[in-house]
């Protein structure tokens, strides 16, 4: 029953021997993977975002890409069904995976003669790929997604001017300005830039009853204001 391949010293060096022939092929594969990894590390620079801010509940997190399919799947389970997505479905999948050898017991290994196993695994792969793709597409159109350009001195100067023009009627900064809204002199030490951006886009996230209105700024102008304010510490 065991089809163990008999080791034999006389066969070393045959095309079928593990060492050195097969190990050479494996080592080439390893080298290729290593080169690709280094290249990807260069091309796909690892972003380090701002430091964790447990108070900023407006941050919309995204998991790493390989968990996106699951993240997307969870969107379809609402209310009392949430637990189906977070618990029962993963449990079912895991149970099925573990039981696979005991369910698919026919002696054949030919995938064409195992329609059930083939269909199930194919469905699994298609589902994962499709959900991942769907998640990426929906993410692209997500309004909350804000890509911040790095702060420059010009941005800060421009941001100060915009602030003086639109915001100072209500907000005070460095002892000048209105008193209808909170003083923003040290706003940079209380809120990070992304949060400032989101408040400008939608003031209601601070408080449902805020009287702050949505200021019509372009994306670039908003980035300038947030650059200016995030540096006020």
């Amino acid at each position: 029953m065991m089809n163990r391949d008999a080791p034999s010293a006389t066969q070393a060096g045959n095309p079928g021997s593990f060492y050195p022939n097969h190990l050479f092929v494996e080592s080439l594969a390893a080298l290729a993977v290593f080169a690709a990894t280094v290249l990807a590390a260069y091309v796909w620079q690892v972003p380090l975002e701002e430091m964790a801010d447990p108070g900023d509940t407006t941050y919309v997190p995204r998991p790493e890409w390989y968990f996106l399919f699951y993240f997307q799947l969870l969107k379809y389970f609402e209310g009392p069904l949430v637990v189906v997505g977070t618990f029962f479905l993963p449990l079912l999948t895991l149970t099925l995976l573990i039981l696979l050898p005991f369910l698919d017991t026919s002696p054949t290994t030919d995938i064409r003669k195992r329609p059930c196993a083939a269909a199930l695994s194919l469905a699994g792969v298609v589902a994962v790929v499709a959900l991942t793709a769907l998640s990426v597409v929906e993410d692209e159109s997500h309004v909350d997604k804000i890509v911040l350009p790095p702060i420059t001195e010009e941005q800060i100067t421009a941001g100060r001017e915009i602030f003086n023009k639109f915001c100072m009627l209500c907000h005070a900064i460095d002892g000048k300005g209105g008193f209808m809204a909170p003083d923003l002199t040290q706003i940079g030490s209380r809120a990070n830039r992304a949060y400032i951006e989101r408040v400008i886009i939608n003031p209601q996230i601070v408080s449902q009853t805020t009287i702050m209105s949505v200021i019509p700024l372009s994306d670039a102008e908003r980035h300038e204001v947030s650059a200016f304010l995030s540096r006020k510490k």
């Binding site: 391949d5 066969q11 095309p15 021997s17 593990f18 060492y19 092929v25 494996e26 993977v33």
Partner: peptide
């Protein structure tokens, strides 16, 4: 190290047998 790799899993004999290298690549990573 000194054992035979069956032909159907040996890329030197069967090019499609590269899929049998995935496990080794996992170990390397």
């Amino acid at each position: 190290a000194d054992h035979q790799v069956p032909d159907h899993a040996n890329p030197l004999k069967t090019p499609t047998a590269l899929i049998y290298c995935f496990g080794g690549i996992c170990l390397f990573i």
